[in-house]
């Protein structure tokens, strides 16, 4: 039961780099009611092999909130985030510093993440200083130049410039360079390429993959784009309104999607090939009113599900194993 919805967690002795267990985050909505942005999310990132786990979901799925909790930036309402077995929110100052060093982040909006008051490369210098990565200024400079090389940026184009003087792609690469400085073991990437032009996207993703191999970095890759997730990840966790509806090995899940939401999602993605146009109208109840009707008892997807039944209204489905590394939370597959 402990491992429902996780990887082959049969092996309890395998130590994990990062464990998110039953993470839940509640927020107070405008009307005064509480709603669960993140609802009982559990996943583990292994220590041995660099792995990419994608958190896939649309807006409102809670994926970014989950990412923030994993980074220790947001305290969960319940559940734990453990780095190498230790609860991140209960760490000592030194342990937390170790954690920060090893778990870095890349964020989405490549403009917003730079303080417009300072030059863009300042944030690299701050990182070096705060984590004591260099003992002198020349050493720091060397470190920066090396990092820039790793992301295909030249010092001339990236250093000594204000954020608005750099292009979107350059800013994003600079962010990756910053994340690399501490040689982290895990990078949480929240929609790293959503706001980047298509022709630059591929290169940034390829750079990230290259870094994974070169420096043994795992990624928690947060995105709404299934195609990119497929390209980039090893495992996938699909979230809908805070709930993990399906997860598993990327190939297993995408070649045989089971959850109605995931199936609908896959069918709704436009394919860049006119020969594969949609031939018939999609069947699902497009959300009609902007109500946060999260029925606390039933399945989260009930109101839009094309195949919902009575039990879906009253009982929340649990994650069950349906393949070698494939788990689904849907009554269609419950025992």
């Amino acid at each position: 039961m402990l491992h429902a919805g996780n990887m082959e967690g049969n092996d309890l002795t395998e130590k994990f780099l990062l464990e998110a267990e039953h993470l839940t985050k509640e927020f107070k909505a405008r009307g005064g009611e509480y709603f669960k942005a993140v609802n009982d999310i559990t996943f583990r990132i292994p220590k041995e092999k660099p792995t990419v786990i994608s958190l896939v979901g649309e807006s409102g799925s809670g994926k970014t909130t989950t990412g923030l909790m994993v980074l220790g930036l947001l305290k969960p309402t319940s559940g734990t985030v453990k780095y190498e077995g230790k609860d991140v929110f209960k760490m000592s100052k030194r342990e937390f510093s170790e954690f920060r060093k090893n778990v870095q982040a890349i964020f989405q909006d490549p403009y917003e993440v730079y303080n417009p008051f300072y030059k863009a490369d300042r944030i690299l210098k701050v990182t070096i200083k705060k984590f004591k990565l260099a003992s002198s200024e020349s050493e720091a400079k060397k470190l920066i130049v090396e990092s820039l090389k790793d992301v295909n940026l030249t010092p001339e184009e990236a250093l000594n410039k204000y954020p608005h003087q750099l292009s979107g792609g350059q800013r994003q690469r600079l962010m990756i360079a910053r994340a690399l400085l501490t040689r982290p073991r895990l990078i949480v990437a929240d929609e790293p390429v959503s706001m980047v032009d298509a022709s630059l996207r591929a290169d940034i993703l390829n750079t990230m993959l290259h870094l994974k191999k070169e420096y043994n970095i795992s990624y928690l890759f947060i995105t709404h784009d299934l195609s990119i997730a497929e390209y980039f990840s090893d495992r996938i966790i699909v979230m809908y309104r805070g709930v993990n509806v399906e997860n598993g090995d990327i190939n297993e899940v995408l070649s045989n999607p089971l959850h109605p939401y995931v199936k609908t999602l896959i069918e709704s993605i436009p394919i860049p090939d006119p020969k594969r146009k949609w031939t018939e109208k999609i069947k699902f109840n497009i959300e009609d009113l902007n109500k946060r009707e999260v029925s606390s008892k039933g399945c989260i997807f009930y109101s839009r599900c094309p195949v919902a039944t009575k039990i879906c209204l009253t009982k929340r489905p649990e994650l069950v194993k349906v393949g070698k590394d494939h788990f689904v939370a849907c009554h269609l597959y419950s025992k």
Partner: peptide
């Protein structure tokens, strides 16, 4: 709530430093 505040925290800046070095200049 701006992104660079998050980034500053990730980079190890303390709350006080964030107030004076990140928010105040803006």
């Amino acid at each position: 709530e701006r992104g660079f505040i998050r980034l500053a925290r990730i980079s190890g800046e303390s709350d006080l430093e964030i107030i004076f070095k990140e928010i105040l200049p803006n």
